[in-house]
Simulated scan of single mutants.
Amino acid sequence: MQRPIAQYRYYDFVMAAFVTVLLCSNLIGAAKAAQVTLPVLGTVTFGAGVLFFPISYIFGDVLTEVYGYGRDRRVIWAGFGALVFAAVMAAVVLALTPVNDAFNNNYQQHLEAVFGNTWRIVTGSIIAFWSGSFVNSYVMAKMKVRMQGRHLWMRTIGSTLCGELVDSGLFYVIAFYGIWSNQQLLAVTVTQYVLKTGWEVVMTPVTYRVVAFLKRKENEDYFDTHTNFNPFKLKS
């Protein structure tokens, strides 16, 4: 018999951290295309949000590994709700008529420049995040059962390769097609995918430590042997 979520000491904290990273990376960094010049590779173009968004996938891996697919599913839906609220709030704030003075008129222009594309960004984020996160969690859970809990590094990297492929492929096309040139869109999408999955590899030692800590403190190491993987079933 599964224990109720309230009995876990750290589950709620991981959920809050996941939603925070998701919101910030999608609304603050997603619209900015940045460049860095690297040895051998030359100039590399990437979305600024890539520096932080992969952390949400690490949280997803940790949640599925420790608490199981069902509880990660609840966190994914919490992130979904947060993104929808952010979109509604941005639309309302932009629609309000600003006070007719120099500061507020100028500030309104800056808000529109930053958040004017929010509906496309959030639509892309919701679809890509929802699809990619569930693919990531599903693959992670299935691999854990198949591998009998061994080779955590293979499961975290393998699930991220699948989830990020879906996420990156959907998000940039939905959010920026017609805004960026096709060449820039392709370059950013490919670079994002490589960087996101690269983050997972680099962060593997940290993931191991976090997973070990939570398993020990929560006395939990969930195997999804009889799990209903329907993404629309909120009960864990």
Rank of each mutant, 00 (worst) to 15 (best):
F18L: 08
T20V: 06
V21P: 00
L22A: 01
L23K: 02
L23D: 04
S25R: 01
L27Q: 02
G29R: 07
A30W: 02
A34M: 13
Q35E: 15
Q35N: 14
V36R: 14
V36E: 14
T37Y: 15
L38S: 14
L41W: 12
T43P: 09
T43L: 08
V44L: 15
G47E: 07
G47N: 10
F52G: 01
P54R: 03
I55A: 13
I55M: 07
Y57G: 10
I58H: 00
F59A: 06
G60E: 13
D61F: 06
D61E: 11
V62T: 07
L63W: 02
Y69D: 06
Y69K: 07
R73M: 09
R73A: 10
R74Q: 13
V75Y: 08
V75W: 04
I76L: 02
G81A: 06
V84H: 02
V84T: 03
A86M: 06
V88K: 00
M89G: 00
A95E: 10
L96A: 09
P98I: 03
V99I: 11
N100G: 04
D101M: 07
Y107P: 05
E112P: 00
V114W: 10
F115C: 07
N117I: 14
T118A: 15
R120E: 09
I121R: 04
V122L: 08
G124E: 11
I127Q: 06
I127M: 10
I127G: 04
S131W: 12
S131H: 03
G132A: 09
N136Q: 15
N136T: 15
N136I: 11
S137L: 08
Y138T: 07
Y138W: 13
Y138S: 07
M140A: 11
M143W: 11
K144Y: 13
K144I: 09
R146Q: 14
R146T: 09
G149L: 12
G149T: 12
L152Q: 11
L152N: 10
L152H: 02
W153R: 06
M154C: 04
R155E: 03
T156N: 11
G158H: 00
G158R: 00
